Simulated assay, not measured.
Amino acid sequence: MESLLKNDTYELVKLPKGRKALKNKWVFKLKKDENQQLTKFKARLVVKGFEQKEGVDFDEIFSPVVKMTSIRVILGMVASMNLEVEQMDVKTAFLHGDLDEEIYMEQPEGFEVKGKEQMVCKLKKSLYGLKQAPRQWYKKFDSFMIGQGYKRTDADPCVYIQQFPGGNFIILLLYVDDMLIVGQDVAMIHKLKAELSKSFDMKDLGPAKQILGMEITRDRKNKKLWLSQEKYVERVLERFNMEGAKPVSSPLGNQFKLSKRSCPTIQEEKDKMTKIPYASAVGSLMYAMVCTRPDIAQAVGVVSRYLSNPGRDHWEAVKWILRYLRGSSKFCLCFGGSKPILEGFIDADWAGDLDSRKSTSGYLFTFAGGAVSWQSKLQKCVALSTTEAEYIATN
């Protein structure tokens, strides 16, 4: 509430005729550090934005976030060039965004003003839960960075860079309210931090240790950096009761010939499968694959084709992938130890999908010795030979 009042988030007014006040709720969360130690109790006022009407309460709502590829490439630069990498967090980031629309909200539960219980809050700033909140925050932060002389990169609108006299530079990566600041000079980074703190309520996290659930470990002497999701993988295994499972050595065994034939057709079988957290497990695997685990990209791509109607064989395949992670939870991406050169590799199978007979394309790009971009997906058309499949993959 202090943050809301400090940011002049709303004012109390009478609700105009024909307008509806949005409801809200308090959301409570336990914040933990990279070692899963409790750091603070967090309360957040969230607007029930699902009640908003398009054209009345919001218009454009898209907001970009930094690409995972950008994060990995920059960390590759950090390792090979021995750069400084610091981290900051924006407190109540969405409260900084200015609203273009007229939006009304009921008074927060437990903080109704005595004698004005019938009045509502006219929002001056965006709040968590509003559909346009992420976009308004990004617009505010973007205008600040442009005003400081930074430029957005063409490849990623959430990567800002500025070059200074003498060859120094600073790169800032923004993922909603998390940011990494990279540069050669610690003093220049601290100067940017001071400017950010003047305009926004910031928390200085010092040298980067983790970002988006990925742990960052450095060896400055040997110019190496490791990006790991060990703790995330362990939490996923615990969530699906696989922490004691027997490990396997491959992401997907040769015995799995997955197809739509394994999908349940009888209602009784479908009802049994609804009790199995198939989609949730695949989603958890997908996040690991997107961040640091290119080795499971092909396997996750296969099991994700059956999300709408998974069968028992599909679920066994998902558990196999979890068993593979059980034995490889310490696997990580390693950057450094080689020149910062971008290299690409590409391959394809032929008619691997048993339902459509389409081939699967796969590519992987490395930078400074570590993987930075990868993908495994079905091709859009059916290839008539291995040569054609590989030719399609190159495009």
Rank of each mutant, 00 (worst) to 15 (best):
S361K: 12
A279D: 14
E2L: 07
T274Y: 12
Q132F: 00
L212Q: 13
L225N: 10
G183N: 05
L192E: 11
P64L: 12
E84D: 10
I103Y: 10
D355H: 05
F94H: 08
M88T: 08
Y160H: 03
S262T: 13
D185I: 05
R220M: 08
W137F: 07
D347Y: 05
R44F: 00
R220F: 10
H96R: 03
I71L: 08
N35I: 02
K125T: 01
V382K: 13
Y306I: 02
R19W: 14
H314S: 01
A281G: 03
L307A: 05
P64C: 11
N254R: 15
I341Q: 12
V85P: 07
A79S: 09
L325S: 01
G18E: 08
R220T: 03
M242Q: 15
A208G: 11
S385A: 08
V372K: 11
D98M: 02
G166F: 05
S361Y: 14
L384V: 11
D355C: 01
L12W: 01
Q229T: 03
K231N: 11
L252P: 05
M289G: 07
T92E: 13
Y278R: 06
V318W: 02
F28E: 13
E390P: 03
T292H: 10
P340I: 03
C332S: 11
K275A: 15
Q255H: 12
L252Q: 11
E117Y: 01
S328P: 00
K275M: 13
V73N: 09
V120Y: 03
F200N: 14
T9N: 10
F141W: 04
M1P: 04
I216E: 12
Q267P: 06
K198W: 10
L322Q: 02
F62C: 06
S373L: 12
C158Y: 06
P134I: 04
Q255R: 12
Q298W: 15
W137V: 02
D185K: 08
L130M: 07
D178F: 00
L99Q: 01
Q163P: 00
Y160I: 00
A351T: 04
M242T: 10
G110R: 06
V233N: 00
R218L: 05
V120T: 09
A43G: 06
